[in-house]
Nucleic acid binder design. Sequence first.
DNA 1: TATATTAATTAAAGCGCTTTAAACTTTTGG
DNA 2: CCAAAAGTTTAAAGCGCTTTAATTAATATA
Lengths: 336, 336
Amino acid sequence: MSLKIIAEKAQVSEATVSLVMNNRPGVNALTREKVLAIAAEIGYVPNSIARSLAMNKSNIIGLVITDVENPFYGSFTKYVNDIAKDNNYSLFISISYHDENIESEILNTLIAQRVDGIIVTPSHKVRSNVDIFDQIDRKKIPCVLATSNYMRESDKFVMTDYAEGSYRLTNYLLSIGHRRIVHIITSDKDSPINSLRTEGYRRAFEENGIKFDDDLIVTCNGASMNYAYLVAKKLMQSKLPDAIITINDVMAIGVEKAAKELKIRIPEELSVAGYDDILLSTFTEPPLTTVRQNIEEIAIQSMEMLFNLIDKKPVAQEQIFIPPELILRSSTMVKS
Amino acid sequence: MSLKIIAEKAQVSEATVSLVMNNRPGVNALTREKVLAIAAEIGYVPNSIARSLAMNKSNIIGLVITDVENPFYGSFTKYVNDIAKDNNYSLFISISYHDENIESEILNTLIAQRVDGIIVTPSHKVRSNVDIFDQIDRKKIPCVLATSNYMRESDKFVMTDYAEGSYRLTNYLLSIGHRRIVHIITSDKDSPINSLRTEGYRRAFEENGIKFDDDLIVTCNGASMNYAYLVAKKLMQSKLPDAIITINDVMAIGVEKAAKELKIRIPEELSVAGYDDILLSTFTEPPLTTVRQNIEEIAIQSMEMLFNLIDKKPVAQEQIFIPPELILRSSTMVKS
DNA sequence: TATATTAATTAAAGCGCTTTAAACTTTTGG
DNA sequence: CCAAAAGTTTAAAGCGCTTTAATTAATATA
């Protein structure tokens, strides 16, 4: 099961076997063949662990995702996975459930595991505790935040220009006559994931010279279908707004469900819009107007940044905003 | 960054530091404190790679999933992740996209990575090539197939009793008057994932003394929303059946979309049912009648089996079928 | 006080690989 | 035919940890 065994059988040194197994030059063709034959015969699979230790390089990238059940992260994972594979890296995926403590634990494990770099989709929370990220900095472990949030001015990240997306969507809704546009965000108002949205949202109102009510910004305990469903239902029972927008598509689906249960017609009585543009959004009834996040681009750019950090190449830009795109479907219509 | 450094600073041997870091007895309280203090001071994080090499145990479980974009696998991943964590294992997740070659590659990487055990949700395809699984057997690497399919009589697996689920669903539909019940499966008819379904489906017809048409079993290129949408649309345009059932929920959502586009009312004109009972199925319009797979139980049992294999404890049963449950919602109704 | 126990510490080998530098072989060219 | 160059091969150290067995120190027993 080890180089040594092959070396003995082939009557060569371990060094030679190592060269052969790594397909490196400097070994005679016949020797190479003999070694290869023996390796195949005994079903030898090199021990990556030993290799990593010797080379001080694991060829593994750690990916921390918050929520496997949201297809948005599913897509992101898929893209990252593909890019990693294309570059000969394996992925070590872990799930944080938007929980800071779990996130910390995971990052610790990744450090212990000596991954070559880390991509993290940060929890939606504003964190009091940034110790672990400081540690990552001190240890100079390549790390980029992707898709959704950041914590410190010094963070390296790639995410959608949320403010711009919210701005465009809000602007559009205002332009077709809506005024009471409820914006459902998550509870950490000051977290960039939320504050950037409300910034764009507010800007749209201001630029249109329309004053808006702070009560229109509603918080939700979590970014899931179910939480949004509950919040929306309660909200619509008291007073029906013109439109409801959410910070992601699955939440908007929750809103659609709440409306259906209350026999509120979308979009005739209520316009609804999401954010992300997951595949599912074209399958809902009605299909969702949404802000498309260019998830593939986010994956590409964050991986590129990560690889540059790993290879110690210069990184042109450490904080990248990817432009969003407004996608109009039939869950929104002109205010009657 | 290593034991050696701490050992030097603390004026003790590496062995002692190792004992302290692993919180093992046999070291003086004062010594322990001194070591711990120094470790904390320099921000020492043990090197799991070196540890794995020395102990010949990685404390990592490899999880191979076919499709991150289907929330069913998202849930499964979540459960497996939690159980692994509770048992002090890390998860190494990889994605196979239902592709045999990728699956092989991944398994090879996992072997190279010397994971302690493997959970694989096998590709839907019947494979001609089972080499890699034979290799896993020969190397005596603990491995259990979960959720969906198996390849060889000797496989260890935990999956839903698909035949039973299809039987119950079909039986129910027959009992409320449907006759032309189309069953959309994937292209590998002989793969257990499909053959078990059609077995239950056929049995329901037989037991009800109703003969059925082989044409009612329709194949689809993949188990996704989109493929099912395409197939269903084509199918309904030629002749509308009484009901359509699919092998998972996302496919049923695709069918619902196709029906809506053709202005076919569900369930009045067409009954639709899925399989899985993902959360989303209560959010579709109409909510889906489906066969619930007890995904948590599958995760629990497969992990239990895996841990037993890893710990070389006896495994009571190597092939486990988990009973499904019929969930009635409003996408099906009595045939008018 | 000498001896037997028990506690604390550590030297050294080993896990399976890579890599450097040196040694040995073969080929080339004058 | 010999020296230089090029091609092969390998001994040995090292990656950072665990573990065994032996050593040393501290404590208890008679």
